[in-house]
């Protein structure tokens, strides 16, 4: 694992999100609680909506384009919709947000 420091948790508003540009596309970091963050693909599998612009509630995000709801823990679409977004390991250490560089590159390999 190679943890990459991408920022501070306070750079993300509570129940907000920011994106990190990667070679594999945008990864969204979702802050679901004061000390809780998740990383997942920013792209909704339905019509490509930017999930980082969705409303975050509990540990879920709603896509801003057509209201698909995804679990940030599993990446699965909720309710009647079928779909999956890639989730990524994310560590929070002393307020710093650490993304796993290996996981990001593995996706290319796959």
């Amino acid at each position: 694992m190679s943890w990459i420091d991408v920022g501070h948790i306070d750079d993300i508003p509570l129940r907000g999100a920011r994106v990190v540009k990667t070679m594999q596309g945008c990864v969204a970091l979702f802050r679901t609680g004061p000390d809780e963050v998740f990383a997942a693909s920013d792209r909704c599998p339905h019509k490509g909506g930017p999930l980082s612009e969705g409303i975050i509630h509990g540990r879920q995000v709603t896509c801003p384009l057509h209201n698909w709801v995804f679990s940030l823990e599993t990446g699965s679409a909720q309710g009647a919709d079928n779909g999956q977004i890639q989730t990524y390991p994310l560590r929070l250490e002393a307020g710093r947000l650490l993304l796993d560089g290996d996981a990001l590159s593995k996706r290319t390999a796959a």
């Binding site: 990459i4 920022g7 990190v20």
Partner: peptide, 13 residues
């Protein structure tokens, strides 16, 4: 700055 990506790993890569 809040409208920009938090980080751009494409540059580092």
């Amino acid at each position: 700055e809040t409208y920009q990506p938090l980080a751009d790993l494409t540059l580092e890569a």
